Every structure is written in structure tokens, then in C-alpha cells.
Simulated assay, not measured.
Amino acid sequence: MKKRPEVTAQTRQNLIDSFWSLYCEKRVEKITVKEITQKAGYNRGTFYEYFTDIYDVLEQLEASLIPSLDELPQFTIQNQTMGMPLDMLMKIYEKNSKYYSVLLGDNGDPAFASKLKNSIKPILKKELLKYSKLSPIEFDFLLEYILSAMIGIMSYWFRNDKELSAEDLITLIQDLMTNGVTDRLLK
């Protein structure tokens, strides 16, 4: 007898949800298949129908949270003023904040930030490189720095219960990018 797709999808999602609730409490290497299946109400065999191991669950979950190029909103730079589309990154972050705040947090997956940056980089590179006078190598380093800073500051913002409004956070990031850290510190 063939399983119904909606039941299969729900079973898979239940296992992911059980994994996620455990992952929010402890590091991935401390989670067992037994814990996930008990929490979800399935047996170990069911788990292995969908995943090869605990790390596969994490990998599939992360893959579902990384925006593809066609999911990223397009942006253009008007009047050749170079800047970052902060609202684009903020929307992506807000949409997945439940996951991003944990995955990018202290007990999260260190590789996730790189995966996120690598998904966003091509669209930014395509648009911003047109206006840059930097060599491609220097540009890559600058883009890495900017994306790392943006992801880091947004992670910090979520961990601190959004103490600043989203508008104030965007203003702060834009000011830091325009004037630099030293100018901001000495104001």
C-alpha cells in the first residue's frame, strides 16, 4: 500500500519539529534519534525513512531556510549610490527568525552563517560590482565583511529581544557602513 503524500510530509515535518525543539535546548551532537522519535511519537525505522542521521535533519532544515536566488527580492542602486539592501536582509531574517536566532546563536551551527551569506552574495555581487572600482578580489573581501557584520548585528538584535526598533537598527547599520565604526564611536 502506497503512503499518501500529505501523511508522508506531515510525518517528516513532525520529526523535524521534534528535532528542532531538542536543538533549541542542546547542541546537535547531544541529540539522539531515540529522543526525536519518542518526542514525535514514531519508531526509529520511521526516522530512517526520511533522514540518514541527526546531521541530515539539521542539513535539510537549514537548506529549507536558505533563500534561493529566485526567492531573494531584486534591488537596484539608484544614482549609483552604493549601499546594502538592508530591508531585504531584514525581511529574510524576520521570516525565519525562529530558526535564525538559534542557528546563528552561540549554540547554533557555525556553518549556517556561511551558507546564508553564500545564498545572498551572488545577487548583491551582480548589482554592486557594476559600481565598484575595487578589484574583484578586494570586492569579495569587502562583501564578505559587510555581510558578516550585517548577519552578526541582526543575530545580536534578535538575541537581545529587538531592543532597537527595526528602523533604528537599519539606521545604525547604514550609519556604520557610511561613516565607519570610529566616527560612530566618537560622536
Score class of each variant (00 low, 15 high):
Met1Pro: 09
Met1Ser: 10
Met1Cys: 09
Lys2Glu: 11
Lys3Glu: 10
Lys3Ile: 09
Arg4Asp: 05
Val7Ile: 13
Val7Trp: 09
Ala9Thr: 12
Ala9Arg: 13
Gln10Gly: 08
Leu15Cys: 05
Leu15Asp: 07
Ile16Gln: 06
Asp17Pro: 05
Ser21Asn: 14
Leu22Thr: 06
Tyr23Lys: 04
Tyr23Leu: 11
Arg27Thr: 14
Val28Tyr: 04
Glu29Thr: 12
Glu29Leu: 11
Gln38Phe: 11
Lys39Pro: 03
Tyr42His: 10
Asn43Ile: 14
Phe47His: 07
Phe47Trp: 09
Tyr48Gln: 09
Tyr50Thr: 00
Tyr50Lys: 05
Phe51Asp: 03
Thr52Pro: 05
Thr52His: 13
Tyr55Lys: 11
Asp56Ile: 08
Asp56Asn: 13
Val57Arg: 00
Leu58Glu: 12
Glu59Trp: 13
Glu62Phe: 03
Ala63Gly: 12
Ser64Lys: 11
Ser64Trp: 03
Ile66Met: 09
Ile66Cys: 12
Pro67His: 03
Pro67Cys: 02
Ser68Thr: 15
Glu71Pro: 05
Glu71Lys: 13
Glu71His: 08
Leu72Ser: 01
Leu72Ile: 14
Gln74Thr: 00
Phe75His: 03
Gln78Cys: 02
Thr81Cys: 09
Thr81His: 12
Gly83Tyr: 08
Met84Gly: 04
Leu86Gln: 04
Leu86Trp: 06
Asp87Pro: 06
Met88Pro: 04
Met90Arg: 10
Lys91Tyr: 06
Tyr93Trp: 14
Asn96Lys: 08
Ser97Ala: 15
Leu104Asn: 03
Asp106Tyr: 15
Asp106Thr: 15
Asn107Glu: 15
Asp109His: 03
Pro110Phe: 08
Phe112Met: 02
Ala113Gln: 13
Ser114Trp: 09
Lys115Arg: 15
Leu116Trp: 06
Lys117Asn: 07
Lys117His: 04
Lys121Trp: 04
Lys121Val: 00
Leu124Gln: 00
Leu124Gly: 06
Lys125Met: 08
Lys126Asn: 10
Leu128Asp: 04
Leu128Tyr: 06
Leu128Trp: 03
Leu128Asn: 00
Lys130Gly: 03
Lys130Val: 12
Lys130Ala: 08
Lys130Asp: 04
Tyr131Trp: 11
Ser135Cys: 02
Ser135Asp: 08
Ser135Arg: 00
Pro136Tyr: 04
Ile137Gln: 10
Glu138Met: 00
Glu138Cys: 05
Asp140Cys: 01
Phe141Gly: 01
Phe141Ile: 05
Leu143Glu: 06
Leu143Ser: 02
Glu144Pro: 07
Tyr145Ile: 02
Leu147Ser: 04
Ala149Tyr: 09
Ile153Lys: 02
Met154Ser: 05
Tyr156Cys: 12
Trp157Cys: 03
Trp157Ser: 02
Asp161Tyr: 14
Glu163Asn: 13
Glu163Leu: 13
Leu164Arg: 10
Asp168Gly: 01
Ile170Asp: 04
Ile170Glu: 07
Ile170Gln: 14
Thr171Asp: 14
Thr171Ala: 13
Leu172Lys: 09
Asp175Arg: 11
Asp175Ser: 12
Leu176Cys: 07
Thr178Val: 08
Asn179Cys: 03
Val181Gly: 06
Leu186Ser: 13
Leu186Val: 15
